[in-house]
Structure formats: C-alpha cells, structure tokens
Design a protein around this nucleic acid. Structure first.
Lengths: 242, 242
DNA sequence: CGCATTTTTGATATAGGTCAAGAGGCGTGG
DNA sequence: CCACGCCTCTTGACCTATATCAAAAATGCG
C-alpha cells in the first residue's frame, strides 16, 4: 500500500540527532545486552566510539540493500523489520524491542535484508561491525551471545509463522495482542491497523473490525487513548479457538 | 490433523541403519558444505567418527524437545521442520535440501526446536557438536561458514513469511512450485497435499484443487507419476497476480 | 485382488477481501 | 480559540475465495 513517506524521513546516517558517545561499562541495561560478557580490558580496545541515537516514529534505522556495516542494539522503543512483495505490498517480518539486536547481516559483510523502521520512540546503540568482530574473536562470551541472538531471531521468525500467519484473523489478532502485553497489569499499546495487518497478513479493515469487536466484547479495554488493558485469559481462549 | 504415526517410525538414534564412517576429506559435495574451509590438519583433530546415515520418508531425524547435541548436514533428499500449534495442528516452517545444515540449536546446548521429518529418501552427515565447536574455535573459515548458515536459515524464514504465508492460495501454491523447480528443464516433484497445506497455511482440499487447476490450465504437466514439468513463466504470472 | 490411504470433486457456508462512505482526532493556520 | 483539512479508524454492503463436510475416484500396498 504505502511504503512511501521515505523521502522526508531521516536515516540514521545523518548524525544531527546524535545523542552522544556511550559508555558501555556503565550501561543501565548492560546485563541483558549483547556486551554483557565483556571485561574491563575489552572496553579498552574499543577505540571507535559507540554511538547512542534517539529515533522517532517513522525514522529509518537502515534500509534493505544498504551495505551492512553496523550492528544495532535496541535500548528502548519499538522497531519493525519490513520486506516488500513483488506487487509492492509490504509485510512486517519481525518486531524489535528493548535488548534486541539487529543488523547481524553485517557480520557477514552483506547488505541489510529489511527496512528497519521506528514505530515508537526508540533509542539504539550503534556498534561498528569491526569492533564487534574483533571483540567476538577475543571474547568467547560475546561470541556465544551473538550466536544466542541469532538463534533467538530464528525462533522469533518461526513463531511469526506459526502464531501470526496461521489460523483465522481473530486468532491471529488475539495472539498478537498477547505478545504485546508487556507489564503484569496486562497493559499494552497497539499500533495502527495498517501495521497490524502487515504483521498478520490480513487487511487493515479486518484488523480494525477485529479490534473493535474485542473492545465491544471486553477482551480489550481502552483506559486512555492507545493505552489498553487486555483480558489475557479470554484472549487465550480466542487464540486457541476454544 | 495427524502429527501421529510417530510410534512406528525410526529416530536417528537407533544406529541399525548406520551407513558407515564418513571420510570428509573426500566428500563429494565438500566444496559447498559446512566443512568446505577445513584443512588437512583440521581433519586430524576429528577423533569421533562422523556418521553418515541414509533415511527414508517418515523417519524422524530429531524431535522438538530432544537435547540438541548433534548438527546435521543434508547430503541429499528432503527434510521438513515441523512445529505444532496449541490446537494440535501442524505447520511446516522450513524445508531442507542438499548442503543445508540443521540442528544449529546444538551450538548453544539447548533443545531442538522442531521435529525434523524426512520427506524424500535422504542422506545426512551427523556431526557431534563438540567436534564442530572445537573446529569452529580453531578455524575461522568454518566459523564464518556457520554464521552464513545461520543467516541463510533466517533469510529462508523471512521468505517463508513473505512468499508462502502471504496472498491468495493460488499465489502461494504458484510460489511454492517455483521454489521446487530444481533443474533447468523445470522438472520437479511435489509432495502430498497435506504437507503442501501445512507449508502454505491452507487446507489440504484447497491445495489439491489448486494443483488440479494448474494441471488443467497447463501450468503444470505430469510426465510420470509425481514427476512434473512446470511452466515457470505462467506460474510467475500467477504468483504476482498479473 | 481387495483394503487403506490419498486425491479429487461437489455442495454449501462463511470469513474475510473490496469498495465506499462516515466519524473521530489532530495539527495548522487564520 | 476555532475552523479547516488530513489522516486513521470504524462501519456498512457486497462478493468472492476458501474452509468445511461429504462422497466418489484414484492410487498404492500387502
């Protein structure tokens, strides 16, 4: 459908939004992050600074076909990986959130495989690929961590197929909502219906109708604009079509 | 639907079908295979023998939940990776063919994520994980090759989503057929309609109807039982809905 | 040859696509 | 602060593709 509005949006290359050089050794999410296993001495070897960037909805982190020379850790926010069909339609193939790593294509020196588009205000760390490669050679734990990320991405992709691309529209929407519930209060934010459709392989209208229906039936309650509370139990019933 | 008929089938653990110890240094497909980059001296370090197994349709290479301690290279044949939905339905999430590697979960010491089921007579090499791990530490090229395989699996998974789980049933079947065409004569073998359905997220009946229709319309010609010639151009038209 | 399994085909129901219009939000500029 | 225009969401009416249920035809196997 659209895939447009690119011309206006920033890519990360323009450093005007640069937030500053990161100090990984005091990173607040360091123990869950790619660099978790690094030692003091490892940090001494990082000469190139690691940038930390704030990004806004609609910004493009990288595009399919760009030379892959950087790896990204998502500190916070939400990013979609998008691929295009021959007919121009788009399909979202993965969502990235806090502590996720993306752009691992860079480790092999190829091109990025997706457009990475910011959906909610996001902060990323930008890791130059040569830094990661050297560290990965020297530090077994980082190396292990990289493989784990790879494995995780693959498991995510499998789930995307089995959960989000299989079954009725109702089931798919329900499963997506369950995935989105973040805190223990079952709160979640949704995104626009078009993106929901591109995630689930259904039309915008069907996404809309289904969400509206869930609201009416009380599986979803909107506390304030785009702030929902989900009835996870009922959603699960729908997801498995009981 | 079924996911059954397991009780009767072999898993690879029973070595009765053992074909013999492989000699990797003279492997006929060695230059396209995981061990492509190994040197003579590397082979000297492989103490544990590398098994080479012939498998028959219906055999199970490994099952979801099994401890992942071996990595497999497909020498020839066809293997499906299957996952199950909560409601018991199955979905095929990947197909493996000659030179593909599977079971990389083993590198992280977890459990296999899928059932790996033989679809057509297959030969695999079984690589004990500790062998691979040691070699990968010593040999950069093997290590690189492993990452490439990981990347490839991920790209396959993305294609599975965009090509085989998106669009009308006709389009999906057409795209699948295009994928299956192997030689330059556009020959291909199909598999049973149920598997086609589980790959495409459609019913067995729809798969059957669509294939039958393609035959009638001449997009597909059956030369002998389960030996087809595909009209790739016409299939492409259908795939992109021109 | 006869049984079991898979494929094909038919009839029917329905979920979801399509096209179109209205409703609600939100930012911009007067 | 309001009015206008733009955009997204929602809803409606309609129609088609695909699921579902069932039975016949074809295929393979012992």
């Amino acid at each position: 459908m659209d895939q447009i509005h690119f011309a206006m949006t920033n890519t990360v290359t323009q450093k005007d939004a640069w937030k500053g050089e990161a100090n990984c050794s005091v990173c607040s999410i360091r123990d869950t992050v790619l660099f978790a296993g690094l030692q003091e001495k490892d940090f001494e070897h990082i000469h190139k600074p690691i940038e930390q960037l704030p990004l806004r909805p609609g910004d493009i982190l990288y595009r399919a076909g760009d030379k892959a020379d950087r790896l990204f850790t998502i500190r916070s926010g939400l990013v979609k990986l998008v691929q295009y069909l021959p007919d121009g339609n788009q399909r979202i193939v993965r969502l990235l959130r806090s502590t996720d790593v993306t752009g691992m294509e860079a480790l092999l020196g190829g091109e990025y495989q997706h457009d990475a588009v910011i959906m909610q205000s996001t902060e990323v760390c930008v890791l130059p690929i040569d830094v990661v490669q050297r560290l990965s050679r020297e530090n077994t734990q980082l190396h292990q961590e990289l493989m784990k990320r790879w494995q995780r991405a693959l498991a995510d992709a499998d789930l995307w197929i089995t959960q989000l691309s299989t079954g009725s529209a109702r089931q798919r929407v329900a499963r997506l909502l369950i995935k989105l519930v973040c805190d223990e209060d079952h709160r979640c934010q949704l995104f626009n219906r078009e993106d929901m459709g591109a995630i689930l392989g259904i039309t915008t209208e069907t996404a809309s109708r289904t969400v509206a229906d869930f609201k009416r039936k009380g599986l979803l309650r909107e506390t304030k604009p785009n702030q929902y509370v989900a009835d996870t139990d009922k959603l699960l019933e729908v997801a498995e079509d009981l």
